[in-house]
Design a protein around this nucleic acid. Sequence first.
DNA 1: CTGAAAGCGCTTACAG
DNA 2: CTGAAAGCGCTTACAG
Lengths: 366, 366
Amino acid sequence: MVRRRSGGGRVTQADVARLAGVSQTVVSMVLNGTGITQHRVGDDTRRRVLDAIERTGYVANPIAQRLAGGNSALVGVYTYEPVFPSSAGDFYQPFLEGVEREAQQRGVDLVLFTSMSAHHGGPLVDGGALHRLRVADGCVLLGRHSHAQDLVALASQDFPYAFVGRRAAPGVTVPFAGADYDEATAVVTRQLLELGHRRIGMVSVTPPHESIEDRVRGYRRAMRAAGQLPVTFEDPDLTSGEFFGTLAEHGMTAVLTVSDLAHDVYSAALARGLRVPEDLSIARLGDPEQREPSVVDWAGFTIPRIEMGAEALRIVLRQLSASDPHGDEPDQDLQAFIPCETFTGSTIAAPPTATTRSTTKETSHT
Amino acid sequence: MVRRRSGGGRVTQADVARLAGVSQTVVSMVLNGTGITQHRVGDDTRRRVLDAIERTGYVANPIAQRLAGGNSALVGVYTYEPVFPSSAGDFYQPFLEGVEREAQQRGVDLVLFTSMSAHHGGPLVDGGALHRLRVADGCVLLGRHSHAQDLVALASQDFPYAFVGRRAAPGVTVPFAGADYDEATAVVTRQLLELGHRRIGMVSVTPPHESIEDRVRGYRRAMRAAGQLPVTFEDPDLTSGEFFGTLAEHGMTAVLTVSDLAHDVYSAALARGLRVPEDLSIARLGDPEQREPSVVDWAGFTIPRIEMGAEALRIVLRQLSASDPHGDEPDQDLQAFIPCETFTGSTIAAPPTATTRSTTKETSHT
DNA sequence: CTGAAAGCGCTTACAG
DNA sequence: CTGAAAGCGCTTACAG
């Protein structure tokens, strides 16, 4: 390897150009795919340049590339909380696994915006944080929370980004890679309906979040399609007898529950002397972070976290390549819904009355 | 907020300067601590500049800063394997937690070099990978492996870096934040000696690694100081009776074991009908990744992973600030040994013979 | 097909 | 105390 400069100095395009006997511009053209196409550097010249690159061990300076208007192959990752403490890490880990896998495949490096995580869940727009994102070519954002102000600020920036998980704000199109909670919840609801359940409740939480809204919508859609009345319980008090009392009053034989409350609903049901699924079917709408495997064999669906992360990065990269041939970006490519996998676990079964009745009927026929 | 440019265009120093009625240089000086000291911008001018910055919401472009020779507040993190798959993640997580915590405190962002992790444990020098590190101001490196070629290549680069875990290669001073395995192992060895053990073995693994060497050195030091002969077993075959046979032959009543083999040694001992610690004391030299809590109450020490990560980042940052006032960097600041915490668990006790003998003696005296 | 030139947004000598 | 200028290493029109 011929090193043009000693010490820490890197080899530059100028060095390569000198060695190849061409101008620095040509070196840049040989390196950039678009330039090649447009300017068609001669085969002979290209060979000389390539050879010089080989001999010098030249590697482009991403910083300079970026400043000059090109891409640095640096994609940001903004998390609303620190990533690595295992507490929060358990939440971020699978998403980031997807982002990382995709980043590696696409040959980009990731910038973790740790410096501004001080907010700890607060909105990103506070401070000059938003500007800092531009160190990278684009940015993947993730967190449990959803700050409308960030969505609006980001949308007015002309900077490629994508959320992991659906985000929405009035008047703006927010790019995201979300899970198809709507459809998954509908599928699970239909499963219960097919098992014979008619009155099916849904346990939800406040404050409202896009991911919760999606589940509620899917639930309502499936219930209405079956001619049943959807009934949602928000943040029910599971310790008092009220919740299960209401369930009984309405003759509900099954409940869907958001994942955060699944365990509590299950335990509370057992504590009330209810057998699951004999007396009450419970389906879990999403799996929690996979640290300690649940002893319960849940029916419901899982969240495609890894794929969500990977797709979010792809959406950012897509915007990057789309902005080259300055056309109007098709919005539909900016939003992706990844399907969830549904499971028929052992927490759901045919409703007690239906079973009794059908059994009775069949018996009488025999 | 007065935005000089609309759309995605950022506010630049030139914009601020125009608004403040000064030159762009002055804006830069006001912003840079060193410039202020040297050039002493007038109080009145500074106020006008600061005011303009406030009004425009100006935030420095780190890319330009870096290209111009300044620092970008971007520190790289190179891991020899992908970070986020939970398999490898369990190894990296605590170290990175420390790096992240420190990064947040110091206001720097982290660049994860995912693009070149394709090597999967292989040396970093392959390909132009090493050059790519320069996107950041400096870099923290971590991984299970130790590649001498990387150490040499890095050392000749004049680029700030630090390893998590001690690294050494002939002829070069490698900056690192390591655990003081040497001293910790010596302490544990002394504990056993004080309990009455004389013949103490050490179980180790190949290939040699700095962290293993340190433990062996500490063990040997403590043994020699006590006038005992150190005996190490490398990759012993625990399934055949050989290992425990040799232990018995030499009259060994205690063994130290590197953490990776701790569980195997323990199980194998039990399988041989040995009681721990009654028949054999076993001390573990370091705790494995903390995922599933061990049922065994191990004696030995823990690895200060979080602190190691934090210190590694500090070492990088120290080199950064040291390179400003171009003096010779004192090497001693580049290498840190973090103390380990030792535990007296229930896997060690006084040796069987010693107990018997002392009991006998005392009884005879009564 | 190839080169000279401008410019990205900064920092840092170097002059006033 | 302040400004004009060069330069960091690239990309990308713009001329030949």
